[in-house]
Design a protein around this nucleic acid. Sequence first.
DNA 1: CGCTTGACACCGT
DNA 2: AACGGTGCCAAGC
Length: 104
Amino acid sequence: MPSKFCDKVYGIIKKIPPGRITTYKEVARCLNTRAYRAVGAALKANPHAPEVPCHRVVKSDGSIGGYSAKGGVKKKIMILEDEGVHVCGGRIDSFKRRFFRLGK
DNA sequence: CGCTTGACACCGT
DNA sequence: AACGGTGCCAAGC
């Protein structure tokens, strides 16, 4: 049984619809924990490639955050733009509007 | 079993 | 409003 922290994180992120974004803290909050750092660590491993849209997870202040995948943050921004999320100066445009509130 | 690290968050200055 | 330092949780060595 997968009930590992990382797996839960992946499951939640997979539920994020296209064009929407969420924060590390929100994901942790959904799991009833404050391990927002662990969430980032899980995404860093990201064994599931495009199936888990880790690029849709950003910081709470609206900044992009990081991206270990090929292309780095640059690529992350590109994908977000492609999803319809505009990014200016490393910050999400209309961050609150694009924010996806997780159930919990 | 214990210390260090990290794709962050929060508070103080 | 911007920058720096400190704290939280889980995973890795």
